[in-house]
Simulated assay, not measured.
Amino acid sequence: MRILHTSDWHIGRSFHGHSTMDALAEVLAALTAQVREHGVDVVLVAGDVFDSATPSGPAYTLLGDALVALHETGARVIVTSGNHDSAARLGFQARLLRDGIHVLTDPLAIGTPVTVSDDHGPVHFYGIPYLEPAIVRPLWPDAQLRTQAQTMAHAMDLVRAGMREHAGRSVAMAHCFAAGVDATAGLEREVRQGGLDVVPLDVFSGPDYVALGHIHGRQQLSEGVRYAGAPLHYSFGEQHKPRGSWLVDLDASGLAAVEWLELPVPRRLVTLTGTLDEILTEANVAAHADDWVCAVYTDELPQSDPMRRLRERFPFCALVQHQPTSSSDDGHLSYVERLHGAVSDSERIEAFLEHVRAGHGPTVLESELIRDVLDERVRDEALV
């Protein structure tokens, strides 16, 4: 059986104020052509189909067009929800889709597979939607589910229980931050890197292949546990990471081969660093006039209207940053930098407490109280 593993489409996300809908439609059309060219049997979309819990009308249209096009190649399509998706809205759409397109958003159905057969017998696909511990904890009151690691471990126990009931090869899909990810891989903007939210790699033992989503750069954590990354570059931090998907072959005994399929980049991303005059040289303009440009100018003083000057030469200049070469370190800057690097509310609170307490962060009791308050907020937002 031949499987294509993709994820993190983020339909509806903007790029520094610019719509990405047309570019994503172009890339998904190329992905569909690869599905047809390589005779793919099953396409897996491992979460974050949408960028928002309340997608726009055009976002639904693009998703519908993409799923129908993939289905028309003859492939089955299996989609799970991510942390950006509304599982309820994505799950509602599942009722309207045709046979051969499966949208898996129900945590209580994790142990029930979608089964697709080939000449060697059945392959069972287990879809794990994104699981926020504070929201799913009431579903399994006897389990201790305070962290992503605990919650994903429980979900994989359900998968392995399903595997014992359904003989044959198996594939799992999940959306989380797994241990072993390269921190330079273009991390998704809300990925929590704190130790409590990292899922150990051995949690995913059992299936022949595990298709992960949440990280925007491709990653191979083991031979059979991988991230495909996003099909588009959604930030300048991702600019050097290839875009594509994994082509996975299963034979009679399990995982046989995995190949990377490159996707086209509709518009390249480039970061130009130097004084403003150096960035605006004819050589740079000739090389990058059609690229998305992040300009980091190093003049000692801020320049007048730099974005206007840059866009006169680079029509797709999206971001300007002033980083003088001789900046002073007054302590306040390091605090601001730490806040900028924080990727979760708990990390931002910790950074603030360390700043105002001369390096002393929250106590164990305070950490528990902070986590309880944040969990309560998540639950309240889920009910809105």
Rank of each mutant, 00 (worst) to 15 (best):
L104Q: 12
L62S: 09
M152S: 09
D345N: 09
I3Q: 10
T115H: 08
G47A: 02
F177A: 07
A286Q: 12
T54D: 14
E132S: 03
V136H: 01
A178W: 07
V343A: 12
S81E: 07
V373A: 13
D375A: 15
W292Q: 13
V114N: 08
G47T: 00
G168F: 00
W292G: 10
P133K: 04
D305P: 08
E350F: 03
L139P: 10
Y126A: 12
L44M: 06
E376M: 00
M307C: 09
H102G: 05
V68S: 11
D251E: 03
H240G: 15
R311P: 08
A257P: 06
V35R: 04
L365K: 09
G274Q: 03
H166M: 07
Y297P: 14
R308M: 12
E300W: 05
R308N: 11
Q34M: 10
E259D: 14
E188T: 11
S253P: 06
A161E: 15
E368F: 03
H5C: 09
H360M: 06
L63Y: 02
Q93S: 15
H154C: 02
Y130I: 07
T151W: 03
D142W: 01
R160S: 02
H240M: 14
G217K: 01
M21Y: 10
S367F: 04
R268F: 05
G82R: 03
S19R: 12
S346L: 08
H240C: 13
T20V: 05
L31M: 15
R89L: 09
V225K: 06
F15T: 10
